[in-house]
Design a binder for these strands. Structure first.
Length: 112
DNA sequence: ATTGTGACTTCGG
DNA sequence: GCCGAAGCCACAA
């Protein structure tokens, strides 16, 4: 496992209900620019006990990055709809739902 | 060292 | 706006 997983998990846990973030965005906020793919891996390997809001992470195009036929795809879509995020044909309006964290406050959150 | 793979991203057409 | 190609990073065979 990468030493960076914890940082990724931490940032992920801060995405508020009703918002979404892209893999690349999480990588950036975790101080790992260019490593979007590592974020997807970190989510897959995340221990269930952490109970992370993994469903709030989608790709930069606003689309769910899971195979559309899979059970996990259905669950992610369901969870998003559940918290008020509109999903049409597997995609979300990023301009409307993308997380825009206050960096100073985020910095504080990460300390603790 | 080389190759293939993936819950990615960006750029062109 | 929807692909496909090319870039990219980490990792396992």
């Amino acid at each position: 496992m990468s030493d960076n997983y914890p940082r990724i998990w931490k940032v992920t846990s801060l995405i508020p209900r009703g918002s979404v973030a892209s893999y690349g965005q999480i990588a950036d906020l975790a101080g790992l620019p260019g490593r979007a793919r590592l974020v997807s891996k970190a989510l897959k390997d995340a221990p269930r006990e952490l109970d992370l809001p993994w469903h709030r992470i989608i790709n930069a195009q606003g689309k769910i990055s899971l195979p559309k036929n899979s059970e996990s795809y259905r669950e992610q879509r369901e969870r998003l709809l559940m918290e008020g995020v509109r999903v049409r044909d597997g995609k979300v309006d990023m301009g409307l739902y993308q997380w825009q964290p206050d960096l100073l406050q985020l910095l504080f959150e990460l300390e603790y």
